[in-house]
Design a protein around this nucleic acid. Sequence first.
DNA 1: ATCCAGGCATGCA
DNA 2: TGCATGCCTGGA
Length: 286
Amino acid sequence: MYELYFSEIFNTVKTFECGQIFRFESDDSGKTYIGALIDRIIKITQKDPHTLIISSNKNSNLEKIVNSFFRTNDNYIDMQKSIKIDSLMKKVVNYSNGLHLLNQDNFECSISYILSQCSNIPRIKRNMKDLAKLYGKSAIFEEQEFFLFPSRSDLIDITEEEFRDLGFGYRAKYLRNFIKNNPSFLIEPILDSEIFNKNLQNIEGIGQKVADCIQLFAYGDISHFPVDTWMEKFMIKYYNDEKKISKKKIRELGTSLFGKWAGYAQEFIYYYARNHPQFFPSKLKK
DNA sequence: ATCCAGGCATGCA
DNA sequence: TGCATGCCTGGA
């Protein structure tokens, strides 16, 4: 057990409930979160606005894994400054203050975003929980049973039908394909960001949005700006005079406005928009 | 009862 | 390139 200090604000509720991660849970309304991280169970307790208390069932290499998970090398203050490009973004950044991007396990995280399409957070959480409980190894932490996320070899013989029986719908095929083929560049990532992106999109079931999410949340490339329906609503409303514009253009716009910190900007906007649904039409005009 | 959700692949202009 | 449609499921 040790303390992890941030000079900026760190808010566990915003970080774990914003929709970027699906398998960490709190049983005391946000003070403590517990979940599996790669090969171990991690417990995170908010001590004060700058300090987390970290504990785990496995201490080898713990600080390194945790630092990577929480992206402790990011200059959060600089990031916030450079995203505050106008009064609106100032409001968005202040509203989201304390939300940190997480650098997740790439296999687990990639699967969560393959399953995310045309779904919703509670359902994705249920899907991921089912996978872990059925196929993952169990681990005991503080006398409670948890499940690690299954490895590729744990899932290699699971058929599309079995995934369908778990309620994955047409995504079952994509998941089966992803596990079966799992190209080598996923293990040793291609350095060029856009080439990696194109390679991801060559995998059946992964399009622009999921590829961006995988790079952002699973491979820590925070220059990506995934455009989902919320991003579309926000950007059209505030940065395109409420006129319809393609998702591709919105992605370009986000990248040019926010540069290397686009991933943070995206998550802040997503968090802001979802918590202010009254500002955004439920359905966009064509 | 429709409708549509944190998309994608496909087919067509 | 841009747009329409079907796809599984399940919650509103």
